[in-house]
């Protein structure tokens, strides 16, 4: 995968996972993507392939996407075995074709995890991540009763660390890239975000226990320090957050 910034258009062979529904067997199908501008994003390349398929009367490739600026967390696929493709700290929509070379073959597959059922082709059901948040990923503060925003000053450093964790976009790349399909980075990020803020402390014990319990129920695996999640996270969330999750969990167990 070399830089080819000087090149303006490339030809590619795509091997794309096609599956018409959750309970039907899928397979890799081969497509040709010709004359692809290297300024295009990966999803724009798929748009072009799909327009061609539609004109030919064939079924276009289904894939999730929305903001196309790397923040909504809707898009994602395994590209040559890597979540969101080869670039570090990049979502699929922000991956540009200049990172590929003429005549490359690209294998595109959906997130694969017991907890994420395939809906169609590259689109998967990630509602398990919402269930984990519903279990405790919040601070119980009804609208109306909040004290002044400056009533509780706290160190800038904690706010920055909380922000580092809160930057998670919930795309599921951590789960897809983990050999155990663990959601520990996702859960660790949310637990850390709140644990680092004074507003999050009152419910810290209840939160971590409930979120971990739900994570297990949803069928996610456990963490065995493979660190694939950190390597592939498009927001570069650190596994320090998993360590913090473990500390919070242990602490909660002693209370």
């Amino acid at each position: 995968m070399s830089e080819s910034k000087d090149k303006k258009a490339i030809n590619l062979t795509l091997k794309v996972w096609r599956q018409i529904g959750p309970d039907v067997k899928g397979s890799l199908e081969t497509y040709h993507a010709g004359d692809i501008s290297t300024d295009m994003s990966f999803l724009e390349m798929l748009d072009v392939v799909n327009e061609g398929l539609i004109i030919e009367g064939k079924e276009p490739i289904a894939f999730d996407h929305d903001c196309r600026e790397g923040i909504c967390g809707m898009c994602g696929a395994m590209v040559n075995g890597r979540a969101h493709g080869p670039e570090k700290g990049t979502t699929l929509c922000q991956l540009h074709m200049r990172h590929f070379s003429d005549n490359d073959t690209i294998v595109i597959e959906p997130w694969k995890s017991r907890a994420f059922k395939i809906i169609k082709d590259l689109a998967v059901d990630r509602s398990a991540l919402d269930l984990i948040i519903q279990a405790g990923g919040y601070i119980s503060a009804n609208a109306g009763g909040a004290p002044d925003g400056n009533a509780i000053p706290f160190p800038q450093e904690s706010a920055e660390k909380a922000m580092d964790a809160a930057a998670c976009i919930g795309c599921g790349a951590c789960v897809a890239s983990c050999p155990n399909a663990s959601a520990m980075l996702f859960v660790g990020a949310k637990v850390s975000h709140f644990a680092l803020l004074p507003q999050g402390r009152p419910e810290a014990v209840k939160r971590v226990l409930a979120m971990v319990k739900k994570m297990d129920e949803c069928g996610f695996g456990n963490c065995t320090n493979e660190t694939e999640c950190e390597a592939e996270c498009p927001k570069e969330i650190s596994i320090t957050n998993i360590a913090r999750l473990n500390r919070e969990y242990l602490k909660a167990g002693f209370l």
Partner: peptide, 22 residues
């Protein structure tokens, strides 16, 4: 003004000064 208070209470990690204020 109420919005900022509400968001801080929910745990929105707004940028802060060294002294800990928003």
């Amino acid at each position: 003004n109420n919005i900022i208070d509400q968001c801080v209470a929910q745990g929105v990690p707004f940028a802060r000064e060294y002294g800990g204020l928003l």
